[in-house]
Design a protein around this nucleic acid. Structure first.
Lengths: 116, 116
DNA sequence: ATCGTATATCGTCGAACAACGATGATTGAA
DNA sequence: TTCAATCATCGTTGTTCGACGATATACGAT
């Protein structure tokens, strides 16, 4: 069960507007988790999505679709992969979904990489 | 053409014994390169290999095979993926192959991740 | 209540990955 | 020269990925 629309939102709406660059300190993840995180960013489209979310604060699926040369369903799939890896966070906002970077997941990834 | 055994070695033998933690500074790679690097470490076995190479200085294929619960051919394949991504460096040493971490590639990866 | 919009999910298809055993090339030793 | 060791490569098989169109669901507006 990994749906967004059909599951309860996991975090409050304020999560999308955290102070930029909080620089959280976390312990490096285990290999399994790190591999999942690395695989999640192991695709150019998903890197673009992360950069997009880092630049803008809009974060709506349609915006991402507009920026990438991919079908809506494909983008949605990339968003799902990033979300399940814990790198982004989706929030239902009326008929649309607002995405933002999950600072915790990103910090976990950075911690795992820098320790290599 | 990506063979090791049948191509000329790309670097001198001293490459495997660089001063540990030289902390090279590099520019972040483009998305395509970063995705390739990330995908390369997006597997637990390959993470284990990197840690193994970071700990030991032995770096011989047989040692890696001995440490992982995988067939020799499978390990060789993982080594190839890491090598082609530029994260490790293989050197023919008589009938065996000595591997070591490619500090440049690893620095590239770290640079790309920390910038996210 | 109906309609249009936004988006996740499904089904499909081809490509890439992961693992293995078998094979072959190369080297050092007997 | 023969033999054993070491390792990359090949061929195969099953699994996962990436992309798409089509569909279904939820919601806001009419």
């Amino acid at each position: 069960m990994t749906s967004v629309r059909h599951s309860t939102p996991t975090k409050s709406i304020e999560e999308c507007h955290v102070p930029p660059e909080a620089e959280v300190v976390v312990a490096p993840p285990d290999d399994e988790t790190l591999a999942t995180l690395a695989k999640a960013i192991g695709h150019p489209a998903r890197l673009m999505i992360l950069r997009l979310l880092a630049d803008r604060e809009t974060c709506i699926t349609g915006d991402v679709v507009a920026e990438l040369p991919l079908a809506q369903s494909t983008v949605s799939e990339h968003l799902r992969i990033l979300r399940e890896a814990g790198l982004i966070h989706g929030e239902i906002e009326g008929p649309r979904t607002r995405y933002c970077i999950d600072a915790g997941g990103l910090a976990l990834l950075k911690a795992g990489i820098t320790v290599l």
